[in-house]
Each structure stands twice: as C-alpha cells, then as structure tokens.
Computed example of a mutant assay.
Amino acid sequence: MSVKYRKRKIVLQFDKENPLSKYVATNVVIGSIGYNKLCDEVNQRTGMHRGVVDVVLKGVQDTMISFLEEGFSVKLGEFGSFRPAIQAKSQDKEEDVDSDTISRVKIIFTPGNKFQQMLNGVSIESVSNASKGGEGDKEGANGSDDGPEGEAPDPAV
C-alpha cells in the first residue's frame, strides 16, 4: 500500500498583522467506495448473498450505535474498536467545568491488528501539486456515492 501526499501552504494567524506561512504534507485520497460497492465486494469475496451482507452490516451498525449511546466501547475483533469521546474547553476552576464546556462529541476508531500490520508496511509517495483531483471528491468506483444521504465523512478520521 502507498499513502500519497502533496505539499500544501498554510497560513497561521497567531499575529493578525504578521501572518506566518508554513508548508505541510497533506494526504491525498483518490476516491471513495460507496456502501453498495462495499456490499458487492463482500459478496464477491465471501459468496454471501448481497442482501445478507447488507442486513448484517446494518445490524452491526444499529447494535454498535446502541452500545455506544450507553457509553460502551465496541470491539470488532481484528477489525478494531470504537469508543465514544468528547472534546472540552479547559477551565481554570473545577466548578466551571460543566456540559457547556464540551465542544464536540465524537467516536474514536482504533484499528485492530490487521490494519496495524497494513500501516506498518505502508510506503509514502509524493504527488505533484499540479494534480488537484482526488481529495475525497470523487464518486465511488461504481459511479455513485451510495452513502447515506446528507452524511459527510469525518475529516478527523
């Protein structure tokens, strides 16, 4: 596997009168595989009927949501684990910490052994800054996004 990156200029506005320019490597995603394509691929690899794959994946999703809502971490064997988490603003005094200081609720995915092994063998490849395509803006391999309507990928993942 190869992770592709390009160089990107960022401007840090710590001092409004003297902005500071820096350069950073940012990953390039070549596209997105939609839900329907994923189900089709699982069908091809396992021989399970596509409808069964769909029902199982939706059942796993619904069950995971139930457990995450209760505050549990959910472990999916070699796949990895999901856990609920929060980001909160720090306060000077303990009594100032309350639910209003929580700025974001999120789910953290920790990859399992197979994903970790894949990442250990990854190579890094530079992509020309002139080629602007491919930062997750392409449709799925089957020509459609197939994802849930109105759902955007989490940029933190």
Rank of each mutant, 00 (worst) to 15 (best):
Q87I: 13
F72V: 01
V28H: 02
K93L: 14
G147I: 00
S66P: 10
K58W: 14
N27W: 15
K58T: 03
K89H: 08
L38P: 04
E17P: 13
I107F: 07
L57I: 01
F115P: 00
F115K: 01
K106T: 04
N43M: 13
A88R: 03
S99K: 05
E149I: 02
G59N: 06
G121C: 05
F72N: 12
V122H: 09
S126H: 14
Q117V: 11
A85I: 07
E78P: 06
Q117P: 04
G136F: 07
G71E: 02
V55N: 15
I86G: 01
S131I: 15
P111C: 04
Q91R: 15
F79W: 03
N27A: 13
D145P: 02
D92P: 11
E149M: 05
E149S: 02
A152G: 05
K114F: 15
V52R: 12
L68R: 01
F72H: 10
D54V: 06
V56T: 01
D100G: 12
P148Q: 02
P153T: 00
G77V: 06
I102W: 10
I30E: 15
N27S: 14
S81I: 04
A141R: 03
G140P: 02
G51R: 08
A130K: 14
E139G: 07
E94T: 10
S90R: 05
Y35L: 09
Q87V: 15
F72P: 04
V53A: 10
S73L: 12
P111S: 02
Y23C: 04
Q87P: 03
F79I: 00
V53S: 07
D62M: 08
